[in-house]
Design a protein around this nucleic acid. Structure first.
Lengths: 349, 349
DNA sequence: TGTTAGCACTCGAAGTTAGTGAGTGCTAAT
DNA sequence: ATTAGCACTCACTAACTTCGAGTGCTAACA
């Protein structure tokens, strides 16, 4: 373990480097932090910290920069602190802005990414909620004029999807009702996942009577479920990356932006839900993906009720103000959860 | 007017510059194009072309580059040619890819931007269709379980919007039907635009009987209409800009990306519908917006039936292969129109 | 009169060199 | 164990040089 002085020096270097983006020399530390020892001593300690893997030198006559291991140490310490006091005013301020133009969940997330990137000056990410573990409470087929039929999928959290389609032939309202009942018998209480399996086999066998319309309904339900599966990625503030001195080479910029614009990668990045922790950090080389091995990713879960259904996050050079950013992200995640609750509650519950 | 030789030289310079991105010297022209005159003559002609405003010199001892005026001349000539033969195979190839994952119009446009940017290596843009000039054929209120009501707005092109909301109190199906009739009486045949006005005044006065639910319904309809108004911008291939030698300075990149990511600006850029022409070009300094005064924008309209409802486009440095790009864009616009017709036809008509 | 060869001149790009200064690491003294 | 002192390192910058593609002018030519 690191002794107290080494830790103080390491933290001093981290803090200075976060601000300046320049390698930190021993004299800088002695001048800015009153540690009561000379620069020569600091130099010795820094040399030790380098041997231990907490510091790196860009070249032999430069100052030191913190390694990913150093950030990890620093951040783990931060995460141990309980987030007891939330800055209520700031939280409510953000909430007010978020609510303003968010009538639907996708708007909310788009909006959140926008505000989050503005607040943090980092690139912000969000992933749309995963609804597929929701249980179906009710399926309803509703006739509309002229052979058009509406299918509504309702879960205990409210309406999750409605689609309108057109039948080939006329069907009586009575027939639709019977079909509605059959579908509900078979599917109620199942998750979207399970419905997917069930639809193709069991049901079709049992309702030959409705063959003429079931051929239409099944694909539509399938399609609706597919839409529920489908995830959306919202990002904002990509240009923020260009303000960091780390990104002055076009090649790095290209790699970064290409990466963030790749939906599949983003989905993967924001999907591995460890539900145990609400804030997660991946620091530099801990990243699986090459293009962001010198970036850190901070993510926070948002919830529907007590169920984690999605994530928001920010990404940027490892040299970041973890303390402030973790707090910001925490505020956003709480706000998003609360607003989702409100939106679904207001409209459907 | 330019005589034939000047024109040939100018086109030669444009073509060479489009390929090389380097200022073109007189010797390059004599070597690559067999014009039957020496480089000295070319030099004299180039000097004239410069005086006429068709060529620029980056500095006194460099070759020439085409001015925006030159591109305008070149492009206007291109646009005069009729697009008689469309490359049918290419069109169908693209169509097949576009259809594949486009079950809804927004997916189609997102997809189009993606493929368009891949095909052209430029940044591709698309704007969602403007539906607000559509006429309402029918409004329907449908009761769903548990105080929830569905509102469907149907135009002659099909369903344009459906929303589910929840009432404070129980309302009988009969009441809903009556209300449906009243709403249809008042609103049928109006455009979305007009409905917006009508809703707030006339209607409310006439249906005091339904005060308890009308207070809910009006805002929902308003909201639905607002959603129909709301435009979406789809962009893809932003990183393509980084491959152009014109964009090797981070500042330029930042300006460009910030510009393209600004939704309001993009809406403005893609909104001024001149319905007379299907392909439009804005070249370099013709652009109103500072950040893209050295870019060209090519846009093409897409239609629903014979009505122009939106645009797709590409944007990049003025030095572009206008001929190929105009053709590509034209193919896409035709395909998009056809697929929209199919989508709306299949699902609703 | 239009075209061309010849040549001096221009100017950015790329390469070279020298100087600067922040920073390290070692040694010897405290 | 700490520190002052000092030689050494090395990226960065600025000034200078070289190089070459390209122009524009002049004078000769068809």
């Amino acid at each position: 373990m690191l002794d107290d002085r080494k830790l103080k020096i390491l933290y001093a270097i981290i803090n200075s480097y976060i601000l300046s983006a320049e390698p930190i020399g021993s004299r800088t530390i002695t001048k800015q932090y009153n540690l009561g020892v000379s620069s020569a001593t600091i130099r010795n300690e820094m040399s030790d910290l380098e041997d231990l893997g907490y510091l790196n030198k860009p070249h032999s006559s430069a100052g030191r920069i913190p390694s990913d291991k150093a950030y990890r140490l620093y951040v783990d310490e931060l995460l141990k602190l309980k987030r007891t006091e939330v800055n209520t005013k700031k939280k409510e301020d953000i909430k007010r802005i978020l609510i303003k133009e968010s009538r639907e969940i996708d708007q909310l997330l788009q909006n959140s990414a926008k505000i989050l990137s503005a607040v943090t000056s980092y690139t912000a990410l969000a992933i749309s909620p995963k609804m597929k573990s929701l249980k179906i409470k009710h399926i309803q087929l509703v006739p509309i004029e002229n052979k058009q039929v509406l299918i509504v999928l309702i879960s205990d959290t409210g309406v999750v999807k409605n689609t309108i389609f057109r039948l080939q032939e006329d069907v009586s309202e009575e027939q639709l009702n019977t079909l509605t009942n059959i579908l509900n018998d078979k599917l109620r209480g199942l998750t979207m996942d399970q419905i997917d399996d069930r639809l193709s086999s069991e049901i079709i066998r049992e309702i030959y009577d409705f063959k003429n319309i079931i051929d239409n309904v099944i694909p539509i339900i399938n399609q609706s479920i597919e839409d529920i599966y489908s995830v959306e990625i919202y990002s904002d503030g990509i240009t923020n990356i260009l303000n960091f001195p780390e990104y002055k080479s076009i090649d790095k910029v290209k790699n970064f932006i290409s990466f963030v614009e790749d939906k599949d990668l983003m989905v993967d990045l924001l999907s591995n839900n460890s539900i145990t922790q609400d804030i997660e950090l991946i620091i530099g080389s801990e990243n699986v993906y090459e293009p962001i091995k010198d970036c850190s990713l901070i993510t926070a879960n948002y919830r529907l009720g007590d169920k984690v259904i999605g994530k928001i996050g920010i990404i940027g050079p490892t040299r970041m103000d973890y303390q402030k950013l973790i707090e910001d992200l925490y505020l956003f995640s709480i706000n998003i959860s609360e607003i989702i609750d409100m939106l679904i509650g207001k409209q459907y519950k």
